[in-house]
Amino acid sequence: MKFSLILPKKIKKQSVSHLLEYTWSMPRKQRHLLRMKKHLFINGLLASWEETVGPNDKVTLVFDQEDFDFLTVEPGDPNLADILYEDEHLIIVNKPEGMKTHGNSPQELALQNHVTAYLNAPAFVVHRLDKETSGAVLFAKNQFILPIIGKIFEENKIHRSYYAVVQGYFSEKNLTLHKNIGRDRHNRKKYVVSKRGKKAITHIETLDKSKKYSLVRCTLDTGRTHQIRVHLSSEGHPIIGDPLYHPYSTKSRMMLHAGKISFVHPLSGEDIEIAAPSDTFIYKKSPLFKSGL
C-alpha cells in the first residue's frame, strides 16, 4: 500500500521524525518499519529522518501487507451503508437504530460488514455506538490511519453531540454532570454512577420540553460505556425507550441519536464537522425531536 499526501499550508516546519511521532502520533512499530525498509519519501526522494518538512511538501509512505495485522470481515449489504463523509483515509456512516457497530462473531452482520461491502475493502472501527443508538460512526479505511485517529479519539479530541428525548425535564437549561461510572455489580450489562468508577463528564443542554418529555443535547468530555444513558437516568430523567435504564418505557426505540461529529483531520489539518440526520427525530424547532411527544 502506498499513501501520498501534501502537507497542509498551516503546518509548522519540523523534522520528519517529529512529523511522524508527534504531529501524526504514528505508532513506534510503523515508524520503525518505514525507516528500516526505507519506505518514506519526501518530494519523491528517500527521506532522512532529521530533514525538515513543511507546507506543500509531498510525503509518500509505502507499507507491505505483512506490516499490518490481517483483518477478515464478511461483506454485508452496501446499500445499508448510509455514507455521510468519505476521503482517502476515513469514512463516516449514519448508523440506524437496532444495528450493532460490529459483530461479535464472523457470522454476525453489523454496520462494519455493510461498510466493508460498500468499500469493497476492510473498514476498521474507530469507535462504536450501542446497538439501540443511531447516528454518526467513524471508521478508518486503512491501518495506517487507524492508530493515528484512534489516539485522537482516546485523547477526547473527536467531539460528538448526541440528542436524546428524556422523561421529564431539568430545572436548569444547561448543566454539567461530573459523575464517575462503573459496572453494576448486580447486572453485568448495566453501568451505574459510582465513586469508585471511572471519571465521566457530560454537558447537557435542554433544547425543548413539554409536560412529559424534554429534548436535550449532550456533549461528552469522556467516552465511558453507556455514559449518557447512565448520567441521564441518575438524574431521574432516563431516555425514552431505553431498554436497560428505562425498561417501562413504551417507546419502540431508544430515543438517542449521535447527531454530530467533529475533529481536526490528523493528516490534512482540515476541520471536519459532519451532521447525521434522523427521520425519527423531527420537530418544528429542531430536526431531532419527534412531534407529538
Rank of each mutant, 00 (worst) to 15 (best):
G150T: 11
E172L: 14
T206Q: 13
V230A: 12
V216I: 13
R128D: 06
P147N: 03
S214D: 03
V165S: 13
S210L: 06
L129R: 10
R183P: 12
R128F: 03
G182P: 07
K198T: 06
K179Q: 15
Y163W: 13
K211A: 08
G223Q: 04
K189L: 13
H127S: 09
G236V: 10
I152S: 03
I228T: 02
H127D: 11
V192H: 04
L177C: 12
K209W: 12
S171V: 09
K198I: 10
S214E: 11
H246Y: 12
E154Q: 14
H178P: 00
Y245V: 05
P243K: 07
H178N: 15
P247A: 03
A200G: 10
I228R: 04
F124A: 10
E132W: 05
I201N: 13
L175M: 10
K211R: 14
K179W: 09
K173V: 14
A200Y: 08
K199H: 14
Y213V: 07
S234I: 00
I158H: 05
N180E: 01
D208I: 05
G236W: 07
S171I: 06
K199S: 13
L146S: 04
R217H: 02
L215E: 00
R188E: 10
K151A: 01
G135E: 08
H246C: 13
Q227F: 05
Y163L: 14
F153D: 04
D242F: 02
R224V: 08
D184W: 07
A136S: 12
L129A: 12
D242S: 01
A200H: 04
Y248N: 07
A140F: 05
Q227L: 03
N174E: 12
E154I: 07
V192W: 10
N142T: 07
T225N: 08
G223L: 02
K190Q: 12
S214W: 05
G241H: 05
I145E: 04
Q167P: 02
S134N: 14
R185D: 09
L146T: 05
G182N: 10
D221S: 03
N156E: 14
G135W: 09
K157M: 09
A140R: 08
K173W: 01
P238Y: 06
F144S: 00
R128V: 04
D208A: 14
T206L: 05
K199M: 11
V193R: 07
R160Q: 15
L175Q: 13
P238R: 01
F139G: 12
T225S: 06
V125T: 13
E172I: 05
L146M: 10
G168Y: 13
Y191L: 00
T206I: 07
T133E: 06
G236H: 10
K179R: 15
G182Q: 11
T176E: 11
K212C: 03
